[in-house]
Amino acid sequence: MTEENAGSVAKRFLYVNRRAPYGTLYALESLEVVLIGAAFEQDVSLAFLGDGVYQLTKGQDTKALEVKNFSPAFRALEDYDVTKLYVEKEALEARGLSESDLVVPVEVVDAERMAEIMEAQDVILSF
């Protein structure tokens, strides 16, 4: 556990993903921070708001865009002990999506609960 890691301070990190997976590079570069950050043994959570929920949708096909489909990488997060993924209920509903459309198990929370989750963090990185 983190206590064994002398000299390091365990903090609660929340990565907030607000953008669609393609169209800009923010989503992919956010995931790169999460994967690097996982090595630091902090308490990590991910939040998906707004168009950010599209990052987790099944069946992404990016061939015509000539960019890499990075959605399979979300399935690897578990291997990095990153298991707390919160998805905004309102964002899913507004886009006609449900939990079964997503590539990984998540916790669907309403905006009010999401605000509480954010309130409980030490570090929030918003992408």
Partner: peptide, 20 residues
């Protein structure tokens, strides 16, 4: 340098402020 420097800044600082 690497992204670890960002995580370290989050750990070591009292506040991490994001401009974007």
């Amino acid at each position: 340098s690497g992204l670890g420097q960002l995580i370290e800044a989050g750990i070591q600082s009292d506040r991490l402020v994001v401009f974007g």
